[in-house]
Amino acid sequence: MSDIKKFMFVNRKAPYGTIYALESLEVVLIAAAFEQDVSMAFLDDGVYQLKKGHATKGIEVKGFEKTYGALEDYDVTKLYVDQESLDARGLTADDMCVPVEVMSRAELGKKMDEQDVVLSF
């Protein structure tokens, strides 16, 4: 597979309330298994996906916080988080369950411009 493209998955939805976050994560793992250059952006309520400490037993739904930890094995290490979105939700980089790169919206916009494919969830 020589034709490697830059894929960015843009996540703007909270986990569990809708299926978007889990769907995005699954597609990311599939794209990464095909050895593409994958990055993920988290902004707006999407930053909630990475909030540490999901305990989903009470709502009887399979939690997927742990799966973000496998992204590194899939060579998905470019996780970009919007500073403004964290601020609006009382969150900081320390609240994230995996190592992320926190950046401004302007920087995030530049990263989007560098992509071959952008997929929105």
Binding site: Y16, K57, I59
Partner: peptide, 21 residues
Amino acid sequence: QGDLEARGFADRVTDGVTTVD
């Protein structure tokens, strides 16, 4: 309460809010 726990916010509830099961 269950929805707060699922999202990792059980320990960050705004003062004055009552949690229910």
